[in-house]
């Protein structure tokens, strides 16, 4: 078995391991910018700044 083939096999195995790690750790799931302790602490400026941001819902300016 040549070295190049071993490298390809090792890299692909590492890729599978990385994909499994990312999936089980929920990596990449989107978070709402207007939800969470930090977002609430930032207050209305964040809410008004988030108007129209896709995927987080439109925020009403009070």
């Amino acid at each position: 078995m040549n070295f190049g083939r071993l490298v390809i096999m090792a890299l692909s195995l590492a890729l599978l391991g990385g994909a499994a790690w990312a999936s089980f750790t929920s990596y990449g799931l989107s978070m709402s910018r207007d939800v969470g302790v930090a977002a609430a602490a930032r207050g209305a400026s964040i809410r008004s700044g988030s108007i129209g941001v896709g995927g987080v819902g439109r925020l009403r300016v009070k």
Binding site: D34, V35, G36, V37, A39, A40, R47, G57, L59
Partner: peptide, 9 residues
């Protein structure tokens, strides 16, 4: 603690 005070349409 307030986590969200927001709006969804």
């Amino acid at each position: 603690t307030a986590l969200a005070d927001t709006y969804r349409e």
